[in-house]
Each structure stands twice: as structure tokens, then as C-alpha cells.
Design a binder for these strands. Structure first.
Lengths: 239, 239
DNA sequence: CGGACAATTTGCGCTGGCGCAAACTCGGGA
DNA sequence: TCCCGAGTTTGCGCCAGCGCAAATTGTCCG
């Protein structure tokens, strides 16, 4: 449950730097913001749940969100992570009435939400807003297809290496010892991103740590030698 | 290569029955059609190729199209099949400048094409056209994610069963002996849809044929007992 | 500061499905 | 009609990665 609060005065600076709102004038940004509702979600709470009626779409202002699909028999697959500034839960824009997955706060999050009913008007009045959203959707479709290709053609080791590299690129934070993934991520999470088991992920990370490619701890991974990880990821065993 | 022909008079009846053009008046349909170019593509020819500049988007008027992604080392994965009436190659609508996959005619095809430059105007003047397209995109994103989930959680046998059921539902033709997939599809094709090898697919189909669940021939599969195939597809081994 | 739980590591045995190879068969073109 | 090549079938051996189980290590909370 969010400890939902309608912030007294949403600051335009919250969103003005986001790609989604580029190409809009300050006045337009303020206006869009006025129709938004802001909420905080504590770590591990759900912003929305799979199969439930889609009432809103969202922008992540701060934090990290895990998008999870659960199978009828309870197995979970992580569809993607949402980073700061991204739009998500855009079921409305794609003509769906329910959310196809759940969105879970990986850390405490701040989120803006708009009622789906506002979507048509927003896109009509601010075409750039719709175009950017659809561009994001296009990117996600392509990324998802890339994942299908990886799962079809790569070994587990390559898939896990690819996943780590992607996380490091998208959400990595430079530290003294390397690029650290800046939200808590477990072996189980990585397994659910790559279609393997936490045991296999653990074995791989242990090996890589021995080789000095990464350092890792409890729910934490730091990539020390991205280059060697790339080599592993692209290893052409099965040509 | 298409033996491209600009048909003298495109008949509105070509498209009036398609969901994509529902909600448009006959006049509007005719007008949209006027800005289209029609081409025929013989079996196995490419409508467009992966990574090439996206110049147009398309509607399949007749035939079946295979959408294929090829990896740097030459392995192929079938992203989906396009059936009559579907829109495809909508890179423009999603802000991409190149096609993320190749589209290959699985049989002789008839295709309508519009220059990407027309997209903004078409969606502006015919909002229902854009909405339907984005709904299709949403469906495909969800289907692709479902495929990721299947590849993460199911055994090969279940995945192949699911793939056959999907093909039977989407493009099946009722015959005396069952539901026949009405375009040529090889064991290799099925393998590329499910992330396995043609050998494994062949073994599974042989077994199913022995069990009377399907009958199959060269580039041909007919589902005789869909119900038992569903049981195989949903088999909860790993619960 | 101590307990309890969650996350991680690691060993061991097994097997689903792949790689390789060879035989076979259908269908279409000369 | 015959031949050729693409598509298919099937046997065999192997191994990547899983399932199971148990030990170990952090971390948070009282």
C-alpha cells in the first residue's frame, strides 16, 4: 500500500528533465503535472497488480521498479526493471483494460499517476508526449524480442552475462570498485530475468568473482571488468 | 523480389472487412486506399529486411508472412507469423528508423504498403486507425512477453504444444481430419519458434502422431485432438 | 547482543534435450 | 518417368544445467 499523499505543490522541476516531457513548454509541463497524482510506495509494495483493472498510467520519479509476470502455477518471471524517469503501466495506450504484469517497488519509490481517461486528451493536446510513449513501447517490444532470441540461442552463462551488462548500463552507479547495480537484486531475481535457477546464478557469480570479473554480496553485484563480461556474453560456442 | 505492380484500381472491398479499417466510412476507406501501393511477393521473398531503413508500413491482404530475426552469427528465430488482415512493419509508429526483423512471404502474398511519411497524417485524420494499430502492438508485446515466460518456465514439449495450438487457432483451417495449419511449415520453422532443434521437434511430432494427436507430413501439420494437445501444453511437471 | 530468518553457497546425481551422423522419403522439375 | 535435393526421421552418446539437500553467512529486529 502506498502511503499516498497528494503533494501540496508538485514541482515542475520533478519532470522537466525527463525525456518524456522534453519538447513541452514549462506551462504545458505544469499543466500536465496538475492532472497527476503523486504517491510514495515503500519497498516491496505493488504499484499495480497483474490482471487487475488498469485505471492509471505512471511515471517513476524516484526509485526502481520490478515488472513481474506470474504464471498460473505461481512461477515468476521478471519482465523488466523500470528506472527513474520512465513511463510504465501504459495499458491504456495499447488498448488493454487490465495490466499484463505486476509492478513492484524494488526500493522506496515516488510515482506520478494519471487516470487512463486523461490519455486521449493528453496525446491530442501534446502529440510529442504520445510519440515519446510509443517510442518507449517500441523499444520495449524490441528488447523483449531480443530476450526471446537470447533465450533461444544462448547458453545460460551468456544470458546471465548479458543481463548483468544490461543492468550495469541502465542502472549502474560508478563506484571505486566498479559499476554497481544500484538497487537490491538477489540471485533469485537474476534467475527470473534469465530463465534459470538461483543455484546456477550463484555458481556463475561465484566463478566470476574468483576470476575478478565482479564482486558481489547479499543482493548486490558490482561489475569490475565489463570487458571480460562482454567476452563471456558474446562467446560464440554454438556458431 | 516482388513482381511489383500498381494495381489499376484497388477495390475498397479488399480492406473494408479488415478490423483495422472498421469504424471508417467507405469514403475514408477509399481515400486511405488511394495512398497505398499494392504489391505481390512470391513465396520466400522478403517484404523487408532486418536492419534496413524502414520506409513503409504494410497490411497483409492475402497470404502468410514469417517475421524472422537473425543473430550476428546467423541463427534465426521466428518472431511471429502475420495473417491476412494484419498490419505489420510499423516501425514508423514506434519511432524506429530501421526494421528490427525481416518479413518473409511464407506463401505468395498480396500486400498494401504506405510510405512512413503518411503515418502522422493518417493517424491525425483517422484516430481509430492509430488506436487499432497500437492495440495490435500492445497485443504483440504481451504475446512476446508470454513467450519469454514460456521459455523460462516450460519444457520443450509444452512449448511446442503451445506453439502448435496457437498456430491452429490463428491460422488453422478446418478439414475432415482436423485443424490444418494452412501454410507450409517445416520442423525447422517450429524449432525456430520454440527455441529448440528440428530433431527434437521431429521426435515430438512423431510421438504425437503415434498417439493420434496430430497427423503431419512434409511442411504440414494437422491437429486432430486439440484437447489432448492442451493437456500436454499445460502439463504441470514443474509446479 | 543474540536469535531468527533470508539469502547464498556448494556438493552430488541425474536427465532432458542437444550435437552428430546416417538413412530415408517425398515432391517437383527436366 | 526418373532423378535430385530439401525435408524428415531416428539412433546414439554426452553434458549443461536442474533438482535436491545441507551447510554457511549476513542482516535486521527485538
Amino acid at each position: 500500500m502506498p502511503w499516498g499523499i497528494r503533494l501540496a505543490a508538485l514541482d515542475r522541476s520533478l519532470i522537466s528533465r525527463l525525456p518524456l516531457f522534453q519538447g513541452l513548454t514549462p506551462d504545458e509541463q505544469s499543466e500536465i503535472l496538475r492532472s497527476a497524482r503523486s504517491s510514495r510506495y515503500p519497498k516491496d509494495s505493488a504499484i499495480f497488480e497483474q490482471e487487475t483493472e488498469a485505471h492509471s498510467f505512471f511515471v517513476l520519479v524516484a526509485g526502481h521498479i520490478r515488472v513481474v509476470r506470474t504464471t498460473p502455477d505461481g512461477q515468476q518471471v521478471i519482465a523488466r526493471y523500470i528506472s527513474e524517469g520512465e513511463i510504465f503501466g501504459v495499458a491504456a495506450a495499447l488498448g488493454r483494460t487490465t495490466y499484463p504484469a505486476s509492478a513492484i517497488a524494488a526500493v522506496d519509490c515516488v510515482v506520478l499517476a494519471w487516470a487512463n481517461a486523461l490519455w486521449p486528451e493528453l496525446t491530442r493536446r501534446f502529440p510529442a508526449f504520445g510519440a515519446t510513449t510509443y517510442k518507449t513501447v517500441g523499444t520495449r517490444l524490441q528488447e523483449t524480442q531480443t530476450r526471446v532470441v537470447e533465450m533461444s540461442t544462448e547458453q545460460v552463462e551468456q544470458r546471465v552475462a548479458h543481463a548483468l551488462l544490461r543492468l550495469a548500463n541502465q542502472t549502474g552507479r560508478k563506484t571505486a570498485s566498479g559499476i554497481e547495480i544500484d538497487f537490491p537484486i538477489s540471485r533469485q531475481d537474476i534467475a527470473e530475468m534469465t530463465g534459470t535457477t538461483l543455484h546456477t546464478v550463484s555458481r556463475l557469480l561465484s566463478k566470476w568473482e574468483d576470476n575478478g570479473i565482479i564482486v558481489s554480496g547479499r543482493q548486490k553485484v558490482t561489475v569490475k571488468d565489463a570487458h571480460r563480461l562482454v567476452v563471456l556474453a558474446e562467446n560464440r560456442d554454438k556458431g
